[in-house]
Design a protein around this nucleic acid. Sequence first.
DNA 1: CTGTTAGCGCGTTCAA
DNA 2: TTGAACGCGCTAACAG
Lengths: 320, 320
Amino acid sequence: MTVSRTLSGGLNVKPDVQQKVMDAVAELGYHRNENARSIRPGHTSGLIGVAITNIANPYYSTFALGVEEEAALAGRRILLGNTSEDSARETALVSDFLGRRVDGLIVVPAGTASRHLEHSQTQGVPVVLASRRVEGLGVDSVVLADTDGAFQGTTALLDSGHTRIGYLGNSLAIFTGERRYAGFARAHEEHGIPVDPALVATNQQTVDQARDATRALLRTENPPTAIFCANNRNAIGALKEINHQINAGSRSVDEFPELMSFDDFELAELSPVPLSVIDHDPRELGRTAARLLLDRLDADGKDAAVRELELPVSLRMSAR
Amino acid sequence: MTVSRTLSGGLNVKPDVQQKVMDAVAELGYHRNENARSIRPGHTSGLIGVAITNIANPYYSTFALGVEEEAALAGRRILLGNTSEDSARETALVSDFLGRRVDGLIVVPAGTASRHLEHSQTQGVPVVLASRRVEGLGVDSVVLADTDGAFQGTTALLDSGHTRIGYLGNSLAIFTGERRYAGFARAHEEHGIPVDPALVATNQQTVDQARDATRALLRTENPPTAIFCANNRNAIGALKEINHQINAGSRSVDEFPELMSFDDFELAELSPVPLSVIDHDPRELGRTAARLLLDRLDADGKDAAVRELELPVSLRMSAR
DNA sequence: CTGTTAGCGCGTTCAA
DNA sequence: TTGAACGCGCTAACAG
């Protein structure tokens, strides 16, 4: 008890005894057992479980940084896990997080399955969805203005005269994939220009897959004059393939399509073809998700209505 | 007890009772309290604490992915924390990790202070250092062949005729900074070419700082014909500045220095100036660090001698 | 100011 | 096959 009291401020412990305790603590390298502390009635772990689909994607690691910063400000740590875009792994991860009694969960959901995120399954542990929503799950969420951003970007391309625009994105079954494609399609509708299905590729998860899809697009007999890339993996893949072909020297630079990327990324400015960006800040997305969660963890935020935020994006047109 | 037995395999529990338990578990969303489990005698948390200097740097997030993959294979999770290159935060982070009774620690040390990593302070929890070593700390470590890689890269530049080579890196007080500079300097020595101190900048932690340093280098009256960049942050900063100046159109491309980057990075191939890379795999670095730790956590690895690994790097010369 | 009691959730051990 | 007692480390509440 004396040690416990000393370590929690030293109230009602003689100063010289406190000193002895501190000396012993320093010498022995003693650390209070947080796991034992967390099982006391009315106490929690101070951990926030963060499940993202891919740590190695700079977009998501920056997102995680934002969460971590905001959590650290509130004296909490994050438990980070990778789902690899796999719903089963997400379920296992969330289950593990709950077993460790995280105070809350921040999830970039991998699929549309959501039983494991339901209130009854999480034992009331609050969940915040980020980047993607899951229908019918009454939880807080923060996503981007996907449809609007894609609409704006596509409109800009159409306005500048493009009529054949390629589309590279991830699966339409994924929340962002569906929304971004919807914006792409609506812009076409409003311009009275049909989307050519031959120019639409929607199953690239990796840079290499995006490269392959780009190669296929460029090989068609009537290739697109611009490509809309629904995320940074696809934009980078397209860029790599185009750069490769330019260096191979088969055609001149301006025979290649210009690019519109949903997501900014490092070194985008080196693109040999004009590249515009639908820009937003993954770090801010992480911070916002964390704030939603932390707020919900506060006594006063506990019973607030469900908040579904949508962060704006901004179109940054290529200088050329 | 019946629930406990059912959840740990169902030995000696009547099948129909097991079923009832499982039904109730599913309905209630019950999860065993891992924190409570971990304080039982002879049990551990299954967590590995990972302290890196910057999650948002793709290099380190890929490193973390490698650790996570390897840890997941062994049924463990990682607790990830950011030190922001700050020794005090590292100490606090490690202390927090120990309080949560991590089974082991993987640390990219921020400084040379190491009291908090000593065996006596970690209560015998094994520590593995990655990327950087700390002198006088008898713990396992895995680092890169920094000196050798820098030596090879610099030698290649000198061999191809450069006599004025700039150096951009992080502080010489940092393990990798010191070693990479040493390789740079030794290559000069062996060629009998002195290093011009005016061309050496060693305090850039961020891309923007690296840009500034590059601008200063290019502005000197006798600018370098090549720049050795000791890590990806510095290479990217140099690239951005050079690209910017090329686009500004003041000089022709081949008046700009070529680049040698210690660290590969995404889209390096888009460089307008020749860029060679001293390549290595951060994911493998992470995996190796995790394996060192997991091995040490096994009964048979417990008392093994200290292992200090050095992973090889490979020089990939610019195609041009 | 310092110590004792009790209970958090779990599973080992022992009893029924 | 099931349940009861015990102890892990910690601290609120209550003696002393």
